[in-house]
């Protein structure tokens, strides 16, 4: 059996929404180069709080790139509130599964989305509960490599 599902390989080979957005409304970056994976997500949000555009840059393994791609695809066109409900589990399911030692990548993808939303809130001055975004800050510590 191959290491990755066909879906993972498809998103790895043809990643959706790769790139940067110069005038992004929110940018989120999670991970650590020491651990071997960093994800950065850019979002454009309209007045109705709908994510109209999303791009990502990822440094990491095949599943890091595939989970980034899948996560962007899953929240593009969704509202901010809907994006915040995106779970790593949903990303894994949409990719037809990931090897156990790669689940970490899907957690990063979920957190990259949350980090981008948090940045959007910060920039727009929208109030939020910092507790909801606690794990994003912790992720930057190298001690958390691989979770």
């Amino acid at each position: 059996m191959a290491l990755y599902s066909e879906k993972v390989m498809d998103h790895f080979r043809n990643p959706r929404n790769v790139g940067q957005i110069d005038d992004a409304d929110g940018i989120g970056e999670v991970g650590n180069a020491k651990c071997g994976d960093i994800m950065r997500m850019y979002i454009k949000v309209n007045d109705d709080q709908v994510i109209t555009d999303i791009k990502f840059n990822t440094f990491g393994c095949g599943s890091a790139i595939a989970t980034s791609s899948m996560a962007t695809e899953m929240i593009k066109g969704k509202t901010i509130d809907e994006a915040l409900t995106l779970s790593n589990k949903a990303v894994v399911e949409a990719l037809d599964g990931l090897p156990t030692h790669k689940i970490h990548c899907s957690v990063l993808a979920e957190q990259a989305v949350r980090a981008a939303v948090k940045d959007y809130y910060d920039k727009k001055g929208i109030a939020y509960d910092p507790e909801d975004f606690k794990e994003i800050e912790e992720e930057d510590l190298p001690a958390h490599c691989g979770l």
């Binding site: 390989m9 790895f12 080979r13 071997g36 990491g60 393994c61 890091a64 691989g146």
Partner: peptide, 22 residues
């Protein structure tokens, strides 16, 4: 990162290895 490099080389028919964590 090494693993994504290996996967892309594999697509080009090249078998290699890496010392990345992944």
């Amino acid at each position: 990162e090494g693993e994504s490099l290996l996967l892309m080389l594999d697509d080009a028919g090249i078998c290699a290895s890496s010392g990345s964590a992944c």
